[in-house]
Design a protein around this nucleic acid. Structure first.
Lengths: 126, 126
DNA sequence: GGCCTGTCTTGACGTCTGTCGAATCAAACA
DNA sequence: TGTTTGATTCGACAGACGTCAAGACAGGCC
């Protein structure tokens, strides 16, 4: 998969190297925006943001759905739906182990999003 | 404005000091998620993400709406609507100067969001 | 095998969002 | 003052989203 490809994918976003410079430095191409926006969108719901933080801050690097669901006053299917959204956005990975399903954060894409929002001290915007 | 207030506001998000540790370190409280999620949500649309990058990377730190609108194949009202969304999320500031309206990025909240997504090398998730 | 527990999928419903055309507001200029 | 140009607001509509109830599936235990 060449780095020069015009169209990015979730795979690229989870790579170790940054896919894009901060938005304070260059305008994002439409193709890049189309790939990155869903990730931000997935974090744009309070429930999913909390879910994401619970998963990302889990002591063992992963957390059981059975620990996530009771933390909200929402039905099981609703939590499952939100987790699916996070999964499809490439933010988390799931893994069934026996009866329970465990979720794990994907640090690569989180780094990409953080890098994109980086504000350099010397930026005009700063 | 005390730092211990349970409820945050957009003002807090634009402060220079970080309001919250990275989500890889602590679970986000519901109140914090409720304040931060709209900012991510605002960035969750490809058009708004491009608008934000055009504004944040503007050479003079600000950019005229008249330069933003022709960059998209969308009507003026639609661009105006997206800009309003970014404004209400606290991501940009607008400023009318004579005939034209200029938009400027608010680096404070961008830093907050970036800090929230920071993945430390020593994190279990990393 | 049969049952139970836990999770995910499906279908449905009300609400929110993105988009546009028309109207409105603000500033400059003749 | 009246006209022109630029940006926002209003009203409307199709499509997407968040939520739940009901059903289906996977795995463990008797």
């Amino acid at each position: 998969m060449s780095k020069q490809a015009a169209v990015l994918s979730i795979t690229d976003l989870n790579a170790d190297t940054a896919c894009c410079p901060p938005i304070t430095q260059h305008r994002i191409p439409a193709e890049t925006a189309a790939v990155l926006a869903p990730a931000f969108k997935a974090l744009g719901d309070p429930v999913r943001l909390q879910l994401m933080s619970m998963i990302a801050s889990a002591p063992d690097g992963e957390i059981c759905v059975c620990d996530l669901t009771p933390a909200f006053e929402l039905s099981g299917p609703t939590i499952s739906h939100h987790l699916k959204t996070l999964r499809e956005a490439g933010l988390v990975d799931s893994d069934r182990r026996g009866t329970w399903v465990y979720y794990r954060a994907r640090p690569g894409i989180m780094r990409q999003l953080a890098a994109l929002l980086t504000v350099d001290a010397a930026d005009p915007a700063g």
